[in-house]
Design a protein around this nucleic acid. Structure first.
Lengths: 275, 275
DNA sequence: CGACAAACAGAATTTTTATTCCATTTGACT
DNA sequence: AGTCAAATGGAATAAAAATTCTGTTTGTCG
């Protein structure tokens, strides 16, 4: 037996679990996975509740703890709890720590901090500006559509591709206009007033997105747009549009707020359809 | 008696205790003070241990809990624990305030708030976990690559497509493996040990992503992975990988943290190249 | 000063929770 | 296929913890 195989701090425990997991029996390996994924559950739960959530027997938890060198489950749990005790910082303390951390950190972490901050700011700002009534109208319109056409190129393409994926999983018919092989115009030409076009574009507006949207508007296809200014050609093309101003870091705009809104629209449409 | 005098969240509990403290009997007031000064002790301790530390009798703790409207001490303790549950505690507290100020009531805005919250949580959690040294290694490896191959399907595709767009604008040669027409394997087969493969996959891991990554690893192509667990097949395939656990709302995982990391990697690689 | 109610400490009890034990199952090896 | 050790599930037991109860103390008011 190895000496002292029972770390008292979480970091080493994590390493230990990872190292031992492969050689553990099936059920115990399952618990290892669960423990690393749900550390708080382990910290606060009871043997019975954790066992239920992890879909194992209570006794397996004790065996697991003992297998990796602890006296019993309570002994192991102590480590999970200790981790939370240390982590407890007030908001001010955390900011302070971040600031200190930032100055001593590498260039990469500075960039990350920058983007993290930009993301949080963007979301917060959208949260304040978002008009519930406008959101409801957009959801209602999208929910009615036979097919939802998703138009967004370049910087907006990740957003539309996410929506397409999510709509697909939710069983909502959609058409992701990918502009592969210059076929975008043909894709959208099928859209009718029974469908809906979801257009996303930010400065500088991709000409193809603008053209497709204006074309659809001319044919009375209902349109929901996400853009970044009242002067955007997209805003001119439809009464239902959202203004999102993403914060940027070193000139690179966040996409967090747009993504959050996109997710909201997809789920809200799915919920609406269910009724 | 006021109706429903037993808040389930810490912020309101704090207010309640402060308000009631002056009119409580001596011992109970003493406990009130102790509780506000040592919330973690309350969250983790047992009635006996807390009583000892606060220099009161165990029964006094129960009487205290009941005096301010809870059913028993365990009931009260639940609130103290809940505050620590999702690790991002001070964050939760902040969000709690936001929620109270929110005027919205529609279903859609509730969904939006849920995603906004999940996004912020995810980013905050990654911020705490992200290892600067690991990030530096990943950036260094990607910066050296002749071509960066981007592998990410389904849910991860928006991320890789963003990276491809950003790399493109920054003049960094990359190859977005889109698996269109089943051509993914051919795309990656060109990758050599002078290139680098960026693989992104979350539970349930897309089999194609896993296969491509393992294949590349076998041919000594350097790999940087983003995944959600140490047990992910991606983590097994490379020493350089990031663990991201996105918070979810109604089962739909946020992508904010992954996106922030992806942006960081692209910009950091570009900066590194400039030198 | 004495009566009374509220507050309290500490023991007794109940409830919850962790751990152990044992019969059954699984899976590897012959 | 048959044997055996390891692993597992689930009930039984032990331990720990929360809560209640009771006799005593404290402090107030007449």
């Amino acid at each position: 037996m190895l000496p002292n195989e029972a770390p008292r701090d979480f970091e080493n425990l994590k390493v230990l679990i990872l190292r031992r997991a492969p050689e553990l029996p099936r059920r115990l390996a399952q618990i290892a996975t669960y423990a690393l994924h749900n550390p708080n559950e382990i910290a606060f739960g009871t043997v019975a509740s954790i066992a239920q959530n992890a879909a194992v027997q209570p006794s397996a938890l004790i065996r697991f703890a003992q297998a990796i060198g602890y006296q019993g489950f309570s002994d192991l749990q102590e480590v999970f709890r200790h981790r939370l005790r240390d982590n407890v910082l007030s908001y001010d303390e955390r900011l302070q720590q971040l600031r200190e951390h930032a100055t001593s950190a590498t260039k990469s972490t500075l960039i990350f901090d920058g983007f993290a901050e930009a993301s949080e700011k963007s979301i917060e700002s959208l949260r304040q500006k978002l008009d519930p009534a406008e959101l409801e109208r957009a959801v209602a319109m999208l929910a009615k559509a036979e097919t939802i056409y998703l138009v967004g190129l370049r910087r907006s393409f990740p957003i539309t591709s996410y929506m397409s994926y999510a709509f697909g999983k939710l069983g909502i018919r959609n058409n992701l206009v990918a502009a592969i092989g210059g076929l975008a115009a043909e894709d959208v030409s099928f859209a009718s007033d029974k469908d809906c076009l979801m257009a996303i574009s930010f400065t500088p507006y991709a000409s193809e997105t603008v053209a497709l949207t204006q074309n659809a508007a001319a044919r009375n296809v209902p349109i929901v747009a996400i853009t970044d200014s009242p002067f955007s050609p997209l805003a001119a093309a439809t009464p239902i549009w959202f203004e999102i101003q993403e914060a940027n870091f070193e000139g690179f705009r966040s996409m967090a707020a747009t993504l959050a809104l996109a997710m909201t629209l997809t789920i809200a449409v799915a919920e609406r359809r269910k009724i």
